[in-house]
Amino acid sequence: MTPELLSTYAADIDNIILLVAVLTGFWFVAAEGVFFWLIWRFRAKPGVKSEYLVGNERHVMKWITWSHGLVLICDVFIVIGAVQVWYNVKQRLPEADSTIRVIGQQWAWTFQHPGADNQLDTPDDIFTVDDLHVEVDRTYHFVLESRDVLHSFSVPVFRIKQDAIPGRAITGWFEATGTGEHDVQCAEICGIGHGVMAARIHIEDSGQHAAWISSASAAQ
């Protein structure tokens, strides 16, 4: 069972994975079917001598060329769909309502949220470890960094996964479409504690989020 779909592009990512699975699954079943049918069809029979086929005769070649052409047509559909999703998720950067900084390190996530001024890198910023707070229906930019080795910021309900690379600040985006508390994980082997490098994302409505900013600011 897959996790809920809670970002604006989560369904697009699932759909392209489904398209790839269906098309490759169809061709896998078809190829295996033809393979075993040929084994059965040309099985050893008493009195029938085997025949050596070079494979370049027209009636033999069609089994390769026709299916090859059909696979290429399927590839076109996959490429068009994948490029659209890639552009939307990775290349396009819609205007942000808010920006957060996500810092990976062995083996924790540090999140820098803007405070009440909604500006990052100001004195009222709120730092948390392993707890990310965002507001539903708002576009967030995240600036992803790593303090040590490769990590990957993965939020399964958003279907997002982005590598964090030491020395680089990588910007991405998401917009949550539903509230709740969900997993954040590291999706890149990063050492012995990789498996327990887990965090939680708290997706809140505007009232809840304002209340959290207020209480977290007071505790800073």
């Binding site: 083996w107 730092f127 012995i192 327990v196």
Partner: peptide
């Protein structure tokens, strides 16, 4: 081990949680 600036502690904490 849960302060953003405690780098060694951040590394230790998940191991203790396990």
């Amino acid at each position: 081990g849960k302060h953003a600036d405690d780098l060694a502690g951040l590394r230790m904490r998940p191991m203790a949680v396990s």
